[in-house]
């Protein structure tokens, strides 16, 4: 009887006790990790070093599934037409899918190379191995890190335009803050009339060009470029295109919505610009 009542009272106090300890622990952890230098950074680095290879495995597996799936879709029509062709296609399924994947990859890399030549910047290629694409934060993980001379603050681009900048570097991996993250801000100009503003992310898959006065002329379709004044992104690289202008918002400035040039849902290969002189220093 006593044991039973002990058990009941234990269970009654279990939840509030766990809540109390957890809240205390959460605030301790958060306050420690927003300090600079972050005393918990080595712990995070250790966790990433231990688990990041699994991302590579998942990426490879996803690529195989993707190849088989594409090959299958391709084969459905062939099967209906001709049994002999189906047999042949079944044999060459994985080969065909591999060719297709290689072709697509080649095209993407060609575009990157073309961009690299145009931009004439010292860059290194990297693959995205994972991303945090939640509502609240937007970042990506690269398969290159300090061992490949990747450093904090380096800008990351792709053939379409600016992707983001390196915010954390580990020996073999690096974390990129995407320009659509709410913590991102880029000094930008409107290509047509050289108006300056700050392009900042809002957490959703879009950005806003801020501090553009209401009497200044910005139109839908205007191309937004990096001004180079922030000291991080190379001058003239494309940031995005204006998709909406709202002058009815309260305040001095108009609200200019910008669709980023890079498609963040399809990022695979990117370029890290290696020798851009950053005027910022790591806090």
């Amino acid at each position: 009887m006593n044991k039973k009542s002990d058990d009941v009272s234990r269970r009654r106090y279990q939840l509030p006790l766990i809540v109390g300890i957890s809240v205390l622990l959460i605030f301790t952890l958060i306050s420690a990790s927003i300090r600079e230098p972050n005393p918990l950074a080595p712990l995070a680095a250790m966790v990433i070093r231990a688990t990041a290879p699994v991302f590579n495995f998942f990426q490879e597996s996803a690529a195989v599934v993707n190849r088989v799936w594409r090959g299958y879709i391709y084969l459905v029509g062939v099967q209906a037409e001709n049994e002999r062709l189906k047999r042949y296609a079944t044999e060459s399924l994985s080969r065909e899918a591999l060719y297709q994947e290689t072709l697509l990859e080649k095209e993407r890399l060609r575009q990157l190379l073309e961009f690299k030549n145009q931009a004439a910047l010292p860059v290194t290629g990297a693959r995205i191995i994972g991303y945090d694409f939640s509502i609240w934060f937007k970042c990506a993980f690269l398969d290159k890190g300090a061992n490949d001379d990747i450093k904090w603050g380096m800008p990351v681009l792709n053939a379409s335009g600016v992707v983001g900048r390196i915010v954390e570097v580990y020996p073999d991996y690096a974390k990129v803050l995407l320009i659509i993250d709410r913590a991102s801000a880029v000094d930008a100009i409107v290509q047509r009339n050289r108006l300056r503003g700050i392009l900042s992310g809002v957490g959703a898959n879009r950005c806003f060009l801020r501090y553009i006065h209401k009497n200044q002329d910005v139109q839908v379709g205007d191309v937004i470029l990096a001004s180079g004044l922030g000291g991080i992104y190379p001058r003239g690289t494309v940031l995005g295109k204006v998709t909406g202008v709202d002058k009815k918002v309260p305040g001095l400035f108009q609200e200019v919505e910008v669709e980023p040039a890079a498609d963040f849902t399809r990022l695979e290969e990117v370029l890290v610009v290696k020798t851009v002189q950053t005027v910022l220093t790591k806090p």
């Binding site: 952890l29 958060i30 420690a32 990790s33 994972g130 974390k175 913590a183």
Partner: peptide, 10 residues
């Protein structure tokens, strides 16, 4: 938290 940009614990 380790894989995102959030402070540890969020």
């Amino acid at each position: 938290d380790c894989y995102g940009l959030a402070p540890l614990g969020l």
